[in-house]
Design a protein around this nucleic acid. Structure first.
Length: 581
DNA sequence: GCCGTTTTCGGCCCGACTGTTTTCAGTCG
């Protein structure tokens, strides 16, 4: 993990240098940081095997930075960095999160007003001490204040599950304008990041003013940040921003390429262009003044010697290297999914109502519409009293109900098979809240942690390892327990979890709920690399939520998963082979 | 500070927009 620590330090050093007005050096540190972040090997390992000479092999690392790395590995500190921090003891990470605050402004505010962090910033802004400063003004002060309030309200980022439907809606409205020739989403929404800062939309139009005027007057616009000839930016009442850019038709592909990739991906692609004697910008690929490509993304990547790659992986995590070698993964797609095994019905109906079949039938019919081959009902179990968890008796009764529905469906020629499972609870000691004798009778069993989240890393790891050792537990639901923006993942030795999953043949869930998205991308990639099987489920509590599958699939794609890594891409028969009994 | 089919010096990703200025710096993506 030294790679990450060093990357952060070099990023900080880069920003310090930028604040001092030093030219070009910041780039060098930034590049080294990017390089370290995407390095596959541990830098400490590289150093222990080959010394500073081996460090020089890392791209972006030269003599000075190699020395810094060596110093850090030996002493845990880098002297010049510590000195920089002493000279300017400000929390840059925090301050630059405020919209409109960059490194230079932060430095001035520290020197003139002693601002070290967000709290200080709020104080001086509210006391109107900022506006009179040279280079600042009334508007800047007001913008900083708004930026601060925005950060407080929702931490500045929104769940992709909240953003995507609104974004699609607006896209549709713009698409209907006759002045709009082509339009599409870019940015982190297109990459399907779990949280989105703002939405980027790109369009081609010969009458940009008309499109812009329509855009800033859309329903739900709270504020217009700015509107120029080719770019406009609005704040929606829901609290997030949307940027619209109008580009020439021959630049649509290059603009899409540029506004989709994350920063690192773009820096690298532009550097690759330079190495080939070309220039890549949002306007196209150029050789000198001459336009070479830009109309489509495919053209752009091809012009600089790369293969087109799916937006979800454009994060400089090795995709560029693989693209050069023609070895990009064949990512899983929504159409590969053959069923959803984490669907809740209303256990209450099973216990009390005579019509307990109805909801399960509705869920199954929704699944048929989605083209699924199977659907799994997996309700909570008895420990979760608040969610009407089923006890052993209830589960057995539900099992009979589902058997009957399957028989009815066969008669009526409904083309789906309903599997019966449950989502049992993993108790703090790793035991399960339902007797094995009953679990055995079900088609499959999901188990998850729904209580005591604050255990030590060792305890929580042992808790899960014990559950995975249970021969009746097939799937671990939402394995890290995080709730996006609300609750951190619990402490877990994920390497040990992967090792155990592999050894015991336990499947890890990719939970599609936009509030969970758990496993997240980086864990999916690690699971894939270890050969651990995964399943993408919706955890739906209403039949409409079966549609959340797309978020799970996107997360899986961000984790580089292919269909072969995900068991619910298999036919029913082959799926069953992945269960323990 | 780093790098090299423009290779040991000279360039580094790049353009739009805002707010402050009065020709441009800072920020963003």
């Amino acid at each position: 993990m030294k790679n990450k620590e060093l990357a952060k330090i070099f990023n900080d050093m880069s920003r310090f240098l930028r604040m001092e007005g030093v030219a070009f050096k910041p780039y060098a540190y930034e590049r080294a940081a990017i390089s370290l972040e995407s390095l596959e090997k541990e830098v400490s390992e590289i150093y222990s095997k080959g010394g500073t000479k081996a460090l020089l092999e890392i791209s972006g690392v030269g003599k000075a930075i190699a020395d810094h790395i060596e110093e850090y590995l030996k002493t845990g500190k880098i002297k010049v960095y510590e000195e920089q921090k002493k000279k300017l003891p400000i929390n840059l990470d925090e301050l630059t999160k405020v919209e409109g605050m960059g490194a230079k402004k932060a430095k001035i505010l520290y020197e003139k007003l002693g601002v070290k962090n967000i709290k200080d910033l709020e104080k001086v802004v509210k006391a109107h001490k900022v506006a009179p400063l040279f280079g600042f003004g009334e508007k800047t002060e007001k913008n900083i204040l708004q930026g601060l309030e925005f950060l407080k309200k929702d931490k500045g980022r929104f769940s992709v599950g909240n953003i995507l439907p609104t974004a699609r809606n607006i896209l549709e409205k713009l698409k209907n304008l006759k002045e709009v020739k082509t339009i599409g989403l870019a940015g982190s929404v297109r990459r399907r990041k779990e949280t989105i800062g703002d939405v980027d939309i790109l369009a081609v139009s010969e009458k940009p003013e008309k499109v812009m005027n329509f855009f800033v007057k859309l329903d739900g616009v709270e504020k217009v940040w700015g509107k120029g000839g080719t770019k406009a930016s609005i704040r929606m009442k829901e609290g997030f921003d949307i940027d619209l850019r109008i580009v020439p038709e021959k630049s649509y592909g290059s603009a899409l390429q540029y506004f989709t990739g994350n920063k690192d991906h773009n820096i690298i692609t532009r550097r690759i262009a330079i190495d080939k004697g070309l220039k890549l910008s949002e306007y196209g690929v150029f050789k000198g003044e001459k336009y070479i490509a830009g109309k489509t993304e495919e053209d752009v990547y091809k012009a600089i010697g790369l293969n087109w790659m799916p937006p979800e992986i454009r994060e400089n995590q090795g995709e560029i290297e693989l693209s050069l070698k023609n070895k990009l993964p064949n990512l899983i797609e929504q159409k590969d999914i053959k069923g959803d095994l984490h669907c809740h019905s209303k256990p209450d109906e099973v216990k009390h109502s005579k019509n307990s079949k109805n909801l399960i039938k509705e869920i199954a019919k929704t699944a048929i519409k989605k083209g699924y081959e199977y659907i799994g009902i997996s309700d909570h179990t008895k420990f979760l009293r608040i969610d009407d968890g089923l006890d052993e008796k209830g589960l057995l009764k539900q099992h009979e109900v589902i058997k009957e529905i399957n028989k009815e469906f066969i008669k009526q020629k409904f083309d789906i098979h309903i599997l019966h499972g449950c989502e049992a609870n993993i108790m703090p000691d790793g035991s399960i809240d339902i007797e094995n004798a009953v679990l055995e009778k079900l088609d499959y069993v999901i188990a998850g942690v729904h209580s005591s989240f604050k255990m030590s890393k060792q305890e929580m790891t042992e808790r899960l390892i014990k559950a995975m050792g249970n021969p009746n537990i097939d799937i671990i639901s939402h394995p890290t327990g995080r709730l996006i923006g609300k609750r951190d993942e619990y402490q877990l030795d994920f390497d040990k979890i992967l090792e155990t999953a592999k050894r015991t043949g336990t499947i890890l869930e990719i939970n599609s709920s936009p509030y969970r998205l758990d496993l997240r991308d980086i864990y999916i990639r690690r699971a894939k690399n270890q050969g651990v099987k995964m399943i993408i489920n919706t955890d739906s509590h209403q039949k409409e939520q079966l549609g959340l599958m797309e978020y799970g699939v996107s997360m899986a794609r961000r984790g580089w998963a292919e269909a072969s890594d995900i068991v619910n891409t298999l036919s029913l028969q082959n799926l069953m082979k992945n269960f323990k009994k």
